[in-house]
Amino acid sequence: MADRIFAGVLLLVAIGYTIIAFTVIHAPFQYDPLGPESWPRILGIVAIPCILFVLAKPDVASLGVPAKTWGRLAALVMMLFAYAYLFQPLGFILATFAFCMALSLMLGSRLLPALAFSAGIGVAGYFLCTKLLELNLPAGVLTIFR
């Protein structure tokens, strides 16, 4: 069933992809015999039968993920998106601190070790990367560290 749902979504995407290849993509001038549209057309035409095959003969019945785990995975993805959202405006140190706290606490760490770990990664990581390795990381609201 899980296979079929995924293949169904994939099929819709592939059909959309192929339709766009046949209708929208078009070069204003013929540069080469194939043009920009032929390659996506070929890919779409090969992909659709493959997806239909998976639809007809699925081999994964269910993902085998218990409801509790789904909740944790959803929380993880939310945290990652929040981290991505806050990364630049808040700056590496604060965003990383918040993210590491949230995730390590969710994964069962006690409060004090999590605090030490998150602060360590945030501050040490920032100075290690920006000063020693000369990588570009956002300073964010802590502009004094820039």
């Binding site: 991505a84 994964l107 760490s109 990581g125 990367c129 990588l135 990381l137 956002p138």
Partner: peptide
Amino acid sequence: QFLTPLIAVLAFIGVYS
């Protein structure tokens, strides 16, 4: 619980930098 966040931080540093 510490290894997992570390992977995410490394990935973010890598892509952003």
